[in-house]
Design a protein around this nucleic acid. Structure first.
Length: 670
RNA sequence: GCCGGUGUAGCUCAGUUGGUUAGAGCAUGCGGCUCAUAUCCGCAGGGUCCGGGGUUCAAGUCCCUGCACCGGCACCA
């Protein structure tokens, strides 16, 4: 049995998964399930990346040990993936002993190969900022933010990886294996990057406790991204189980976001070359998800969609289909509730779902559900073969959207076949033989379509197969070769049941469905499956829900990570009323405005990013709210001593705070 | 200002290395069917492929240029 090892990127645990991360897992899951269907022995690995300083900080803020925080986040992630029916075989965490063993092994190998050397990072260090400063950041040899503090010349011991040594081998590899990076556009970017030269990279941090110690310098920990990449090999036994490693490595496919392509096609392969390990066969950089055209990001709450919510609304399978079929794999994709609901109605309610219903209904009505094999209908059988081949070719080429479309063409072909052969007319005319044949073939067209769609909609397809009298214990038992063609022998008992995907009516689609419905678990006995819908009836929009036009709100903070401030902490912020004396645009900037403001006792210069929303002249005389005790910052060469308060949603123009009655400049706000 | 992306039917988008008459779904109009969740099937209308210039026997596709929108950074303290 051929093997297939694929991975997704492991996820940072500093926030809960959103639809963008879910998209990657769904796409990878579709590929994994397709490979199983195609007869491969599949290993599908996902996991969490836990050794970042951010995680360390977040844990501290939540009053937790880092590992306890990570444990909690693991549950969050597992819950999300479970609600989306992600069929990973293994879930690796970078804090696990097996991963530490893998990292240690790689570090040891690179060290032995002479590809790690000790270097020092030297530079001006500003104690006030707790950071190294570049020469260009210093003014008269001093940190502009802390002009009274003498910067210190510091050295930090670091270990460097000789990445530069692998420039030519990487270029050779890319030329020898054009399929290594996909899609194509990313490959060109990397070629340009390599042609421009590579610099060695630092792989350690001194003086940190949260991380994996370097075997040859226990005082340093491995830098987080270097650590993270190794998970792909440590998950299959690097450093712990040579036999397992030999079985699965190299990976057939890394599915990652396009933003981290260069880590995966430059640094990671260079590490493997240095360690004497084979390179992964393919790296696929998928696109980003947007919400209603806006970039989905943590700092923009309106764009964050909780994948479990989205799945709960119409079902995990409809969501999986939408993301797989409507987004060209490799391109950015947009999610909107309206489009999701539209595609749900068209593809699932009207076409596939209705086909299931009409086939089972006719079988029951004309034959008490009992169908006997009949000769294949030529056109439909040919369509099944053609579309199944196109489907497999597309899947092999990772054109997931094209593959879905092929499967749906078979759904269309089956609907056409039914219309053309009019079984209801045959029934009326008493042409039993012809009727038997049409019913059998229609059910076969549908069955093959369900087999093809099973990687995308596993639970639903299992239900469809059960209703068609061809139950499987697990869709993983299906095989393309055997099951994705029209069969011409046997007898079956079909069962009609509730609509799989009830059509959403216009007024229901206008409002988000706030009721969280969980998918009815599919029972193990096919009989029950046939009797129970895999997806509950769409919840009717209640009058109350109909008034709500906003989508479900952004992800709530993780339980237990209470980030609220005490009153003392809040009082540290010195908010003041200020009156604008002068305002002028900062030359060559897009949105910066330089203000001088009256604070009662003093006059301050503040630079604010409000130039896109306000004309500077209109600000003069206006009373605004500012933060008065911020550390100064330099913006476009101008020192800003404070911050103007404004309502500012990401992507929207800021709106200044206004006072209904004018307070005196300098008045404290609290 | 720099870097990147996008611009194709009313809407949402496909369009491989240049190659017949530029496609799909939705929406619209007409017709058919009644097994089915008012579903399905057929037909039709609808396009300056953002503008301009160029290369070529041939350009939605390649090159130059302009415009518009989006994203990132410089600058949101």
């Amino acid at each position: 049995m051929p093997r297939y090892y694929l991975t997704t990127a492991i996820d940072y645990v500093n926030s809960r998964p959103h639809l963008g991360t879910a998209y990657e897992k769904i796409a990878a899951d579709v590929i994994a399930r397709y490979r199983r269907l195609a007869g491969f022995d599949v290993r599908f690995v996902m996991g969490n990346d836990e050794h970042s300083q951010n995680v360390f900080r977040q844990a501290a803020e939540a009053g937790l040990e880092p590992i306890a925080y990570c444990d909690r986040m693991e549950q969050e992630f597992r819950k999300a993936w479970s609600s989306l029916d992600i069929s990973f075989d293994d879930f690796i965490r970078t804090t696990q002993p097996r991963h530490k063993a893998g990292v240690t092994e790689i570090a040891r190998r690179l060290h032995a190969a002479g590809d790690i050397y000790q270097g020092t990072y030297e530079g001006w260090y500003c104690v006030g900022c707790e950071a190294f400063k570049q020469d260009k950041d210093l003014v008269d040899g001093r940190c502009p933010l802390h002009p009274r503090t003498e910067p210190q010349w510091l050295k930090e011991n670091n270990h460097f990886f000789r990445l530069s040594k692998y420039r030519q081998p990487l270029l050779d590899h890319l030329h020898a294996h054009p399929e290594f990076i996909q899609p194509e556009s990313r490959r060109n970017e990397i070629l340009r990057l390599l042609e421009g030269g590579l610099e060695d990279v630092s792989i350690s941090r001194a003086g940190q406790s949260w991380g994996i110690p370097l075997p040859f310098d226990p005082g340093s920990v491995v830098y987080v991204w270097f650590d993270a990449l190794i998970n792909y090999a440590s998950a299959v036994g690097l450093g712990t189980d040579d036999e397992l490693l030999a079985t699965w490595w190299p990976a057939d496919l890394h599915v990652i976001g396009k933003d981290i392509t260069r880590f995966h096609v430059v640094i990671w392969p260079a590490m493997l070359l240095a360690a004497g390990l084979p390179l992964p066969r393919r790296v696929f950089g998928h696109g980003f998800m947007t919400k209603d055209g806006q970039r989905m990001s943590k700092s923009n709450p309106g764009t964050i969609i909780d994948p479990s919510d989205a799945a709960a609304r119409l079902g995990a399978d409809p969501l999986r289909l939408f993301l797989t079929k409507e987004i060209v794999f490799g391109n950015d994709g947009d999610f909107s509730w309206g489009r999701f609901e539209e595609k749900y109605n068209v593809d699932l309610a009207n076409n596939l779902g209705n086909l299931v219903n009409r086939v089972t209904a006719m079988a029951e009505r004309y034959r008490q559900g009992r169908l006997v094999a009949a000769p294949a209908a030529e056109t439909l059988a040919a369509a099944a073969t053609t579309h199944a081949h196109a489907y497999a070719a597309a899947m092999d080429a990772l054109q997931l959207d094209v593959a879905c479309q092929s499967a749906f063409r078979l759904v269309d072909a089956t609907n056409e076949y039914i219309a053309a052969s009019a079984p209801w007319a045959l029934a009326k005319a008493g042409q039993d033989h012809a009727l038997d044949r049409v019913l059998w073939n229609a059910s076969e067209g549908l069955r093959v379509a369900a087999v093809l769609l099973s990687p995308v909609m596993p639970a639903s397809c299992r239900t469809i197969l059960a209703r068609l009298g061809t139950p499987v214990a697990d869709v993983g038992d299906l095989r393309l070769e055997r099951d994705a063609q029209v069969h011409v022998s046997g007898t079956r008992q079909l069962t009609r049941a509730d609509a799989l995907w009830p059509r959403l009516e216009a007024d229901a689609t206008a409002a988000p469905i706030s009721t969280k419905t969980k998918e009815t678990p599919v029972s193990d006995t096919p009989k029950d499956v046939a009797a129970t819908p895999a997806v509950p009836a769409a919840p009717a929009a209640s009058p109350a829900a109909a008034q709500v036009t906003a989508p479900p709100s952004a992800a709530a903070p993780v339980e237990g990570t209470d980030t609220r401030l005490s009153i003392d902490e809040f009082m540290k912020v010195d908010l003041r009323v200020a009156q604008v004396l002068t305002a002028e645009r900062v030359p060559k900037s897009k949105k910066l405005v330089k203000l001088s403001v009256d604070l009662g006792s003093e006059t301050r210069t503040i630079v604010a990013g409000i130039g896109e929303a306000y004309e500077p002249e209109a600000l003069v005389g206006r009373r605004i709210a500012i933060v008065a005790n911020l550390k100064p910052a330099k913006l476009m060469g101008i020192e800003s001593n404070g911050m103007v308060l404004a309502a500012s949603a990401e992507g929207n123009r800021p709106i200044l705070i206004d006072f209904a009655e004018p307070p005196a400049p300098g008045t404290r706000i609290r």
